[in-house]
Design a protein around this nucleic acid. Structure first.
Lengths: 121, 121
DNA sequence: CGGGATCCTCAGGGATACTG
DNA sequence: CAGTATCCCTGAGGATCCCG
């Protein structure tokens, strides 16, 4: 066998991980950090619409899973930098592809939606 | 410019689309349909833990966005098949990579979590 | 078989205020 | 600056029943 895990099984621990990364905010954070490391407020500013609570929560979860690293500098006031870990880097391609897919295909999506609404309504 | 859309902007229509595909259940459905077309109850059976309500909702949303197609056969009782559209097919690689990433890296994730819990307490 | 309609809950996440 | 702590609320989603 390749490995003992099965994402289709609801009791598999991979499900919990998928639940964390298959999330709008997590993907945007990972995508942003895939470009370059960033500080807390920079992330908050650039990822429009995210609340500091959700940002904080998500960063902590991603750090716990080993996808991102947190480095604090003893300046005054404190400076904190978030970056992808090597493990997190393995995900960048998939993350970027998913996050930016909508941008590249929005016109086709609009047409599909219009056609669907025509048919159904 | 490449295109007029920006996923980092909260008012961009791509955000709504991302919200739909950056979802645990949507990714599992897309991944499953990436292997082969499937019927409603087959999806419900194979994607363990999904409720028929969420399955139904998600399928409808994905169909509206043009990612999957629904074909009903006038048998008794009715037979319905879901499959990826060409548009949906463009996403399969990214979806598969994300969905199965946890399976391939679960050991590293476990270690990261253990180390984190040790550090934090 | 492939769903639609209801009811209900509970936890995800927004808003606000405070701190090292 | 980079968060933590509370309060509060709504809407995602589970459970159940029903139907063409």
């Amino acid at each position: 066998m390749k490995h003992a895990y099965d994402i289709y099984s609801d009791r598999c621990p991979t499900r919990a991980v998928l639940d964390r990364i298959a999330d709008k905010w997590a993907l945007l954070i990972l995508d942003r950090l895939g470009e370059d490391r960033a500080r807390f407020n920079a992330l908050k500013r650039e990822i429009e619409g995210i609340s500091q609570k959700v940002l904080s929560q998500t960063l902590k979860a991603l750090e716990r899973d080993g996808l991102i690293s947190r480095k604090a500098f003893p300046t005054v006031p404190v400076t904190v930098e978030y970056a992808l870990t090597p493990l997190g880097h393995k995900l960048t391609e998939a993350v970027s592809a998913l996050a930016h897919w909508a941008e590249a295909n929005m016109d086709a999506i609009h047409k599909a939606q219009a056609a669907y609404d025509q048919r159904v309504r």
